[in-house]
Write a protein that binds this DNA or RNA. Structure first.
Lengths: 262, 262
DNA sequence: TAATGTCGTTTCACATAGTGATATATACGT
DNA sequence: ACGTATATATCACTATGTGAAACGACATTA
C-alpha cells in the first residue's frame, strides 16, 4: 500500500472529531486533532464549502453537515442487507411482538442499521445509527464468536470492557470462554449484560466470504422472556439468519459455522 | 471563504461516486471523477487505509466502507430531531395507524431520517436513508413553501422535474403557485404526485433560526384517506410539527410562518 | 473608553506533499 | 505464448498545502 494522502487523513480526523459531539470550537478541534489552527481551519472551510460541515451562525461552532446522511444507504452492502432483511425482520416481529434489531460490525463497534420496534408499550429499543460494544450485546457476541482469530484479537485489543450491569462480561478471558459456547450453540444470549432487565438473543449473518459481519437480534424485557417463547426464538432466529446469509451469497453455510473459514 | 483544499474536494467527489452504486472499477471511477488514474488510485488507497472504502477481494472493485455508517447520527442536529420527534411520531402512528415519516432537506433532496411504519399490511413505506425529490413529496413541498427565496431558487434551479405519475408537478411555475397555497394552509398535500394511489400530507419543522429544514408526513393508500380522517390529520400534524419546532428552539413560531424570516 | 484577552480568519514565503505521464505487474482470455 | 485488459508503482516537477505571525471582531475587565 502506497503512502496515504496526508490532508485526507487529517480531514477524516477532523470529521471524526466533529462526529463526537454536537458542536466544537476551532480552537478545541485543532487541539484535539493536534493540528495548527490555520490547518484545521482550512480543512473545516473546505468541508463547509462542500456541505459536509455546518457552522452555527450564533456560536460559530462547527458540526457535521447533514449531507453525511446521504451515506446511510449503500455503505458497503449496507443497502443489500437492509433490503433483504426487511421481510424476515417483519415476520419475526409479527411472530413474537418484540423488538428486532439488525446491526453491523464496524471496526470494534456494533452499529444498528435497522430496528423494528415492538408494539408493546414496555419495550426495548435502540435507534438506527446507535453504537454499542461487542462484549455487552447479543449481536456483538454472535459476530465475535465466528470471527477469525486475528480479527477477533484486534477487536479485543481495542475493547474497553465497560461494565453496564452486574452481569456484564468484563474481561477478555471470560468473554473468550463465553464465545466458545456461542459458537457451539450457533446463537448468543445477552442476559442483562447490557441493560438491567433486558434479555436479548442474537444470531450471526455471514457474507459471501463466509465471514460474520452483521447479526440479527430479538430484545425484550426479561419478564416477558418465558422459557417456551425463548425456545421458539432460539429455533427461529438462527434459521432466519442462515437464510439471510444464503441470500447474501453464502454457498456453503457449514463453512461459516465450521472451525476455521477456508 | 478561502480556497478549498483541492485533494479534499477530489476525495469527496470520489466518495460521492462510490456512494452511487455497489461497486466500481478504478478505471470507471477515474473517468467519472475526471481524474487521472493514479490520482484516483491514491485517493482510494488512502480511503482504504482509513477504512472508509473497501475493495472486493474477488472483483477488485471499490465501494464505500461501512465506517460511514458511523456518521448517521450527529449529522447536524440529526440526532436531536430524531430523538425529539420519536414520541410525537408514535402518537400519530397510534392515532391513525398509518406510516409516519420524518425527513430532512439536504441540498436539493429529501432524506428520510426516521420512518414509523403502519401495521396495515397494505401500507406505504420508505426506508431510512432513502432520498426523494422536493417537487414530488409532501415533505419536500412543506419545506420548500417556507424557504427564503434565494435558497428556494437554488434548489429549483438544480431540480429536474421528473414525472412519477400523471399528477406530478413538472414545471417550476406550477410548483411555485402550489407552494403559495401550501404556505397559506401551513401544510402540504401530495395527492398521487409521487406514487399512484398514495396520498401524503406534510408539515414543516423549523430550526431556531426560523428556517424550515425538515418535515413530518403521514402517508397512506388513497383508498383509506377518507375526508373525516384527513381533516383530523390536517388538524393534528401541523400542531405536532409546531410543537417539535418549539422543542428545537424556535421562540416565535409566527415568524416561521410569516412572509419573510427576520 | 482604553486595555487586554480570546476567538475565528487571512496572509505569505517556503518546501513539502501531491501530481500524472509513463512504466510495471498481474490477471485473464484466446 | 501472446495480447489486452486491468490495478499498482515510479519519479522528476512544481503546484499545493503549510503554519508562524498578523489581523479583525467581539467580549471582558479596569
Amino acid at each position: 500500500m502506497g503512502k496515504p494522502i496526508k490532508v485526507v487523513t487529517k480531514t477524516f480526523k477532523v470529521i471524526e472529531i466533529l462526529n463526537q459531539g454536537k458542536g466544537i470550537s476551532l480552537k478545541d478541534l485543532a487541539q484535539q486533532a493536534s493540528l495548527p489552527k490555520p490547518t484545521a481551519f482550512r480543512i473545516l472551510d473546505t468541508l463547509l464549502s462542500l456541505g459536509y460541515a455546518d457552522q452555527d451562525a450564533a456560536t460559530q461552532q462547527f458540526r457535521l453537515g447533514s449531507k453525511f446522511l446521504t451515506f446511510v444507504k449503500s455503505s458497503s452492502a449496507g443497502a443489500d442487507i437492509i433490503a433483504l432483511a426487511k421481510p424476515y425482520m417483519e415476520k419475526l416481529g409479527e411472530a413474537y411482538g418484540e423488538t428486532i434489531n439488525l446491526a453491523r460490525l464496524t471496526g470494534d463497534q456494533i452499529i444498528y442499521v435497522r430496528v423494528l420496534e415492538s408494539d408493546h408499550s414496555f419495550r426495548i429499543s435502540d435507534n438506527i445509527g446507535d453504537r454499542a460494544s461487542v462484549h455487552s450485546t447479543a449481536i456483538g457476541k454472535a459476530i465475535a464468536a465466528f470471527l477469525p482469530e486475528p480479527q477477533l484479537k484486534e477487536i479485543l485489543n481495542t475493547t474497553t470492557f465497560t461494565s453496564f450491569t452486574r452481569k456484564t462480561i468484563i474481561d477478555e478471558a471470560s468473554l473468550r470462554k463465553h464465545l466458545v459456547l456461542v459458537k457451539l450453540q450457533g446463537y448468543s444470549v445477552d442476559d442483562e449484560e447490557g441493560h438491567d432487565g433486558v434479555l436479548c438473543i442474537g444470531a450471526p449473518i455471514f457474507n459471501k466470504d463466509n465471514l460474520p459481519f452483521a447479526a440479527m437480534s430479538i430484545s425484550m424485557p426479561k419478564v416477558r422472556a418465558k422459557k417456551k417463547v425463548l425456545d421458539n426464538m432460539i429455533r427461529d432466529l438462527p434459521k432466519v439468519a442462515v437464510q439471510l446469509s444464503l441470500d447474501l451469497g453464502v454457498t456453503d453455510i457449514r463453512k461459516c459455522f465450521g472451525k476455521e473459514p477456508s
